[in-house]
Amino acid sequence: MEDIYDVIILGAGPAGLSAGIYASRAKLKTLILNEGTIGGQVILTHEIANYPGVETTNGFQLINIMKKQAKDFGCIIKANLTVKGINLSSKIKEIETDSGDIYKAKTIILATGGKPRYLNIPGEDEFKGRGVSYCATCDGEFFTGKEVVVVGGGNSAIEESVSLAKYAGKITIVHQFDHFQALPYYVEMAKKNPKIHFRMNSELREISGESSVKLVKIENLSNNHLSELNTDGIFVFIGYVANIEGLKNLVEINSKGEIIVDHNMKTNVEGVYAAGDCIAKRYRQVTTAVADGTIAALSVSDYLMNQNYIN
């Protein structure tokens, strides 16, 4: 007999795991497929102090418990795979992975989360770990006394610049706008630090070097002038984007690249639901992702009941 799941959940962050817990506890045959690390962005959080009912913990521990809960209720989790194809249009949905496996389900919950935005410029990938970094806390000490460029203008970029100033000799913040999105408090701290310099209205165009980063090309967006800056490292903090690769023509998506859902987490496609950071919403917290996942799983359960799929 063909193996058809009641629900396949794409993504194993807080939204996906919560959906997995609720769906499998409701005795739905549940499979979670995850492209990267189980836990999504939250495992990178060093301290979570505002998750109700849980005293201060970290993202890794919280996710490990969620994962165990889901598995204990019978949820199957397959991680670190690559989704090659998604068919949501037929009554039985299909997910194909790069290993050639095809998983079928009556319903789908899209909980693909968000991912850090990359620069996508020449040299970025080549010099990753050899000057290009996405974590000042991790790699800051390798740049002691050196000159670095920080890209971005939000809270992370400014906060991390101040943190990097403990190590680096000189920091140049390159930001595409003429003002920062970061809270004024952080901006003031950065402006007061003599090691931190600013290049506004500017974007990086190329990273080059030999065994490590030596030079960046920066474009001034107000006059399109291209200049070069000698540097030992580049720290990139330019926000997050919803993970909707492969979903663009399958479900309704807004101009920001977020999946549109109703209050039951239902998309415009029958039997397809979405939850967490990939959906259009204002607040992105672990708690809101957990709530989204819960609602999506309960909606799936209700849908399957109404379709007479289950008794």
Binding site: G36, L44, A79, N80, C138
Partner: peptide, 17 residues
């Protein structure tokens, strides 16, 4: 060889898998 940081955790997870 790493820390409990954003660049390290994904590698531990891959190894675990």
């Amino acid at each position: 060889c790493g820390r409990m940081g954003p660049m390290c955790l994904p590698v531990y997870d891959v190894m675990d898998e």
